[in-house]
Design a protein around this nucleic acid. Structure first.
Lengths: 122, 122
DNA sequence: TATCGTTATGTTATCAGAAATATAACGATA
DNA sequence: TATCGTTATATTTCTGATAACATAACGATA
């Protein structure tokens, strides 16, 4: 029905150092140990995932993901301790912020019409 | 340099009842007394502005903007008391949230590399 | 009753960002 | 030393959101 969507991005210069998409990707990389598998799991192209990782790594003091190429399984990617910590902190701030914003938003929400508009995409 | 960008949208069913763009538009309509003048001031097309107004008005219990067509000056649009109040509340929540998020974000920000990446769009 | 600037709404064109495709390099292991 | 799945990267194609364009209706006022 009604919802409050909050999006928090950390920008660094011209590019987005971290945000919701990168957080999800990081989590998937942690789970699968591979950029390509992570990308596939969220059906994102490998190329895009690789680019996001590159920006992240370049934006922070330490790499969040380290990759290795070649080898019997072709290579892989692992989430560093640092990366894991960034993810944890981001998620934590997001959860707190969600709660904060939602509580602050109550009076505004009460001004919305009870029923949403009909969906016209048919 | 580094910044935290926070975006708060209120969704209602499938469409976005309110958000940063609509807030700016509302403010401009209040200032200019016309959708077309407001649109022009933020160089947005009249059509787009009109659509945003339509969604807003349909999403809330009362209209935020009332329009009149024809007449010596062609017509116009005014921000209702209700619309003004929605705008005020939204801006208030946004400011508070900005502050909250920024303070919660400090440790994460300290993990960013000091210098942003070079801009490659040249 | 002609004018004028605005609201209201449909149609077409454009373009940036994303997807799709292609290809090279890599190196453990069998 | 051939294989295989992955990283790494360039190029081409597609698409969906938006801009641009067009047009009708409206009505106070002069």
């Amino acid at each position: 029905m009604h919802a409050v969507k909050i999006k928090i991005q950390i920008t660094s210069g011209n590019d987005i150092a971290f945000g919701p998409g990168k957080a999800d990707l990081l989590e998937a990389i942690g789970r699968y140990g591979s950029i390509s598998a992570a990308a596939k799991s969220m059906n994102m192209s490998y190329k895009r995932a690789w680019e996001l990782v590159a920006v992240m790594n370049a934006s922070f003091k330490q790499p969040l993901v380290v990759t290795s190429v070649g080898g019997s399984h072709g290579g892989g990617a692992i989430l560093t301790e640092f990366g894991f910590e960034v993810l944890r902190l981001y998620r934590e701030v997001l959860a707190k912020s969600d709660q904060f914003v939602l509580s602050e938003m109550q009076n505004l929400l009460s001004m919305l019409s009870a029923l949403p508009n009909p969906d016209l995409t048919s």
